[in-house]
Computed example of a mutant assay.
Amino acid sequence: MSYVTKDGECIQWDENDPASLESWFGNYGHAEHFRKVVLASCREAERAKAVAAEAKVTEARLDDLARTSDAYVEYLITTLRGRALRERNVLASAGY
């Protein structure tokens, strides 16, 4: 999974590079920060849908819709795979 910034920079992790996986999924990794960005983006997309439909939606409902949106769920599934790869690297480096 990758993300493209507004400046066109592609940000992603390399599944074949332990350092890349560690920087994303290790202690103080970037995956949690990007999760919040993805969630906020999904929330704004849901807000835009509600405005376009002239529907009244509470903030709590927007949060629920964002957390069940396809984009957010895809992010969670993809990062789960990345976390598993990182964990395998950690175990392999420890000799397990």
Rank of each mutant, 00 (worst) to 15 (best):
R35M: 11
R86D: 00
E46C: 14
E46G: 02
A19M: 09
G95Q: 02
Y3E: 03
P18V: 01
T68F: 05
I11H: 08
R67D: 07
T79P: 00
D70T: 13
A92N: 10
N89G: 09
I77K: 07
C10S: 13
G82S: 06
A50Q: 01
V38K: 00
V57W: 04
T78Y: 00
A94S: 11
S69H: 06
F34L: 13
T79S: 08
L39H: 09
E32G: 03
R67N: 14
D14R: 12
W13L: 05
L39R: 12
E54T: 08
R35E: 15
K36Q: 14
E44T: 06
D17C: 08
G8Y: 10
G26W: 08
W13Q: 06
E54H: 08
T58L: 08
Y75W: 14
E87L: 08
D64A: 10
L39A: 06
H33D: 12
A84N: 13
T78F: 00
M1F: 08
G26M: 12
R83G: 06
A92W: 07
A53E: 13
A66Y: 02
G95E: 02
R61H: 11
A66L: 07
K6N: 15
N27M: 07
E44W: 11
L91M: 09
V73L: 13
L91P: 00
A45N: 10
E32D: 14
A66M: 10
F34R: 03
E59H: 04
R88P: 01
